[in-house]
Amino acid sequence: MILHPTVIANLLASCIVSFMVLYASYYGVQILRHWDIRSGDELQLILERKTYLISTLLTFVFGLQLLSLFLYIFTADVLCPLFVGAMCAAGTLNVNEFGYPTLVLKIINFILAGIWLVLNYADNQGYDYPLIKIKYLLLVFIAPFIVLETALASAYFLNMEADVITSCCGSLFSAEETAAGLGSEIAALPARTMLWIFYLAMACSLAAGIYFYLKGKGGYLYALVSLLVFGIALVSIVSFISLYIYELPTHHCPFCIIMEEYDYIGYLLYILLFGAVVAGIGIGALLPFRHVPSLQNVLGGFIRRLALASVVLYAAFTALVTYEIISSNLIM
């Protein structure tokens, strides 16, 4: 293990989130089994008080979970000078077999935690805990992912060996035919075609989002489209966006863009992208409950605000990408 403040911060954050989620899940199971709002039993009143405390705590815990994704990337970036061959976070994540699986789980958990926060906010708008069973069911579903993430992150950080020679991002995200791996396969996609797919997907997403915001129709479609666009945007970063930022036709790394040399532009791009997808999927998660009596006066407005947030964030992401392309010296 490498004793670095960021490593300790990562492990602490993971352990805190796991502990709190497990603690909350224990009460979540009790709520799923015994919750009956019509009852005046002592257990029901205890659960009512507990859920108030637990949902407040979980708001902060999942907030920490959201931040931990960026902390993890930042840590991998900061530690890269310690490993031979690593030029950025891509190399650090490759020092053992746990780095990339942890990253994938952190991305999944970011989205799941975001959806839980959206559901929790909506639930708090109703006077009769209208989504309580749904949100605790989701919590019980999320808990194993969070625990697995903690296990993988611990294995990753505890098994870091400073004498390991790792790969640099140039080989991990290489478009050459000899290169193997998912990163290289994405990098090998034709950049110009991906550029058109990206703008087409963004145009469809923005159109669907604006249509839903104005007409209140097609919410599920927008939720689905926003998830697809999120995937396309991630692929696009590797495929062509990175090329314009680095002004190099062969450098596809999605991690170098978070470095100081590129004004930390990657953080902004990823924040916009992850914010947009959580808000977009949140719409789909809430739509089934818009007719619940205690929510029908407030949920419509909240869903519209989510749609607006998602559209604005995707539009900002697209505008930023466009700016990078226009201001780049790279001509493809």
Binding site: I37, L45, E48, Y52, N124, Y127
Partner: peptide, 8 residues
Amino acid sequence: ITSLPERF
């Protein structure tokens, strides 16, 4: 009213 969340 006893089950109401605090803000209500």
